[in-house]
Design a protein around this nucleic acid. Sequence first.
DNA 1: ATACGAATTTGACAATTGTCAATTGCTTTT
DNA 2: AAAAGCAATTGACAATTGTCAAATTCGTAT
Lengths: 188, 188
Amino acid sequence: MFTEYLNILNKISPLSSESKLLLLDYLAIKKIKKGDYILEHNKICKHIYFVNEGFVRIFYYKNGKDITEWFSNKNQFFFSITSYFDEIPSNLIIEASEDSEIIFLSKKGLGKLMKSNLEIANLFIELLSGSLIFSQKRIESIQFETAKQRYFNLIKVQPAILNKMSLQHISSFLGITQETLSRIRSNI
Amino acid sequence: MFTEYLNILNKISPLSSESKLLLLDYLAIKKIKKGDYILEHNKICKHIYFVNEGFVRIFYYKNGKDITEWFSNKNQFFFSITSYFDEIPSNLIIEASEDSEIIFLSKKGLGKLMKSNLEIANLFIELLSGSLIFSQKRIESIQFETAKQRYFNLIKVQPAILNKMSLQHISSFLGITQETLSRIRSNI
DNA sequence: ATACGAATTTGACAATTGTCAATTGCTTTT
DNA sequence: AAAAGCAATTGACAATTGTCAAATTCGTAT
């Protein structure tokens, strides 16, 4: 059930069968229906999530408006960074944009294992450095690129997103209004 | 010479004397004169830096303009995330804004030690998660707050910065022109 | 103290993007 | 097929911020 997942972890940082066995205790898999939440508003994020199947949208409310922060495809990890580490209520909401299957890796378990198991500590280091690079590239993209450039980059890198997300979600993700995005589109 | 630094590391994640001894081999301390660079443009970032004394500015050039990305005070860590992990030329430049004393922790050494030493692996996890939280808060600050709010927050949290950084550096850090910042200031 | 240069402020105008409202287009339901 | 409802587009106008130029202030060296 978790073999494929453990193989993916193993590729990120090598794990012995013993380490894999230890991790198994702290894994869970859940089917989430389209529109249902994986992480609700103001709940504390106690897992690192993984999209085994489906598509997930991460968003927040700003002045009552739904702003898309990010989305995750099959085989991607995601979690609410500030809620997870600081153990504070999450201002991010995570929902399944389509029927999905999500693997939950518990913070408690991971925290315990990494104190005693070198392989798992190094796995966590790889996961964290991956997130950190990702986070940094996000900042650079916001700072270096205009909304127009980011839109063209999005349709180049993840064209599938265009069919899965509405104009409103794409524009809020890009940090512009839907009218402006509509005008960018018509000016091609 | 490095005892204070090692104590700070120890507070972040506990280290035995043996682990401290191992780390010592990979530490260096350098005095950097005001205006000199700690990391030059297009060089690969091979260290995690620490401000033992002084004040450091991190910036990049965009369309020929000097944009301040961040600054680090005494007892803060800093490095170029994408250059460090991906081992690519850094688009960030790091300079000493005043005469400074910087501690260099080598990537090579840290990478080697964390593969065999659980305490050092856990120290690195703490450093990374700290950076990740920081990076994430930066994104949230850019997304949730206006330039005006970020300015007021800056003078509240780090009032010393105002004396150390010019209007140009502060405004580029906030993502606005210096004229706009000047007008924000005069409207108080 | 004075003069010089750099940093900051101010003004006038232009460009970009947002807001609000109306319209069009598409999909679903009866 | 018609109607209803939602998403996307378009238009007119307002607000914000940027650009360029000039004026002023500030700090430093002579």
